[in-house]
Design a protein around this nucleic acid. Sequence first.
DNA 1: GTGAAAGCGCTAACAC
DNA 2: GTGTTAGCGCTTTCAC
Lengths: 338, 338
Amino acid sequence: MVKKKDFVTIKDVAKISGYSINTVSRALGNRGYVKRETKEKILKVASELGYMRNCAASALRTKRSHIVGVVVVDNTNPFYAEVIKGVELEAKKYGYTIILINTDRSYENEEKAIEILLQRRVEGLIITAVQTKNDDLKRLVDEKIPNVIIGSKFDELVTNYVCSDDEKGGYLAAKHLLENNHKKLLLVNAEKYKYASKMRELGVRKAISEINVSAKLEVIYSKDGFDNGYDTFVKFIEKNKTKFEYDGIICYNDVYAFAVMKALKERGIRIPDDVSIVGFDDIYFSSIVEPSLTTVRTDKPKLGAEAFRILMNNIESGSVTELTLPVELVVRNSTIKR
Amino acid sequence: MVKKKDFVTIKDVAKISGYSINTVSRALGNRGYVKRETKEKILKVASELGYMRNCAASALRTKRSHIVGVVVVDNTNPFYAEVIKGVELEAKKYGYTIILINTDRSYENEEKAIEILLQRRVEGLIITAVQTKNDDLKRLVDEKIPNVIIGSKFDELVTNYVCSDDEKGGYLAAKHLLENNHKKLLLVNAEKYKYASKMRELGVRKAISEINVSAKLEVIYSKDGFDNGYDTFVKFIEKNKTKFEYDGIICYNDVYAFAVMKALKERGIRIPDDVSIVGFDDIYFSSIVEPSLTTVRTDKPKLGAEAFRILMNNIESGSVTELTLPVELVVRNSTIKR
DNA sequence: GTGAAAGCGCTAACAC
DNA sequence: GTGTTAGCGCTTTCAC
């Protein structure tokens, strides 16, 4: 282990400037009474010496680390990437930094991540939950460790939540198709246990019951990710060997939509001529793919930024907030009037 | 500010277990001599009390934070997202966590990010540099603060580097087109000052000089990102009002390639029938777009993982490493034999 | 306004 | 093997 140069401490600044450690601390921390002139002198010495405060030390003393933990399923997923960015940007404004940990959809990893972050004494956690189990989250709530959950809700856990309006989103997607005279819908949903999956399906069904009860709806459920979505969908259409019989497909999210589009193209089924596709999230590539994807847009950076702000409120005042952000339908070229 | 429950400390564990603080510390830290039996008792008490080590405290004492700072241009860029993931995964194995900061392509932000991370006493930094200026990096090197730079090199800075073989990549892309009888190439490159931009262009030129010196090459330079790439390219082809005259386009990266593809499609120029397109990076969506993109694949998670490992080596032994990772051409449907 | 002294939770040296 | 003591760099009383 290479010897590392010691950093300049407040003590060094005190010695050189001739003031006490304490006065230096106050001057540097903009806190308590310090004569203007004294402060200037101290700041000068500090900057000359290249002083940099040691956050770990002040965190230890003040019990405020100014760090928040961010636990996500997968930071390479464009949706989470944007959420993370939202958190990071907002955190920066408040003088906070974020420690990022991926769980790769594993509950055990989620549990471990939380453990690690607590050891680091993060002031709070922002979590996009794996949702297969939630004992780890329950523990946070029980121990009153500030936390915000993004993108899902658990009835049994009273805590801070930030979600998109998933039900409304499902509703808008289905409404768009129904109003454009689609009659045979397929919903390629995520796994049933997921909150967003349930809500989006609810919205779809509501639209049907309101707008056209005679429209047909079939629902299939797929694990997360492009490959799983592709496999599930392909298996489904291969089983129904007869002609492909849907005129509109609503997908759990844009990545699923891409998978569906790929499978359809491979089979010579044209989009949107033969079948319309609607996605969810409006990730970056949705406007680029061919045809560009009609989708329900969620405000991902805002999801992150609001989560951070709610976390701060929770830390400061103990307030508990459930926030649902609006969604909007973005119509592009993957859907058509029939 | 809500009062927060104090965490259990080593002192509490000492009191309850009847051993000294020190013995407890050793037992919990797996360090020094502790009788097996004693250790078990202590661990039992610790777990009953819900003890969790305070990393900030031990970091202060040992001067090892077990944190590394990760500074990227933009975590939502699929390339960086994968690099980050590689770092994070590797860091986890070593018991490290990462603090992530975005710079949004601003040198000032990069400088600030480094400042913040140093205050947090990260053990080292992994940086994808903005490259417009590098005084901040120079400072790191001068002050011997462990750091690894990903994706670019600076002649004047002797430090750790991890890059993909950009020159080889450019070479492979051009070779592929030339060998498939393309004669009029366009390189849509990133800004000239960028390391990867220079190297990739070098590779392209080398291929031409080796394989077909009579092939034409034009180069245009664009700022980063889809929108900039699109604008630059459109402006370029609008200027050349005559018929579009290239039979192969090599793009700085896949995102540029998507932008180019979009602009071409809008003008009824067919890919690959009229013009072939080659990208760089092989991000996730490159296999999904239509037509799927021929591209030079870089191993992004490995770039991150290796950067972390090199950082560890540098911290432990002071070793300085420059690593270039191999690239490979992935041929898909955006290129064709002429 | 400024300084002295205590202590955050932990680990390292050194006794015993 | 275990305990005593000091101290990492900072902030927080509380004197003066």
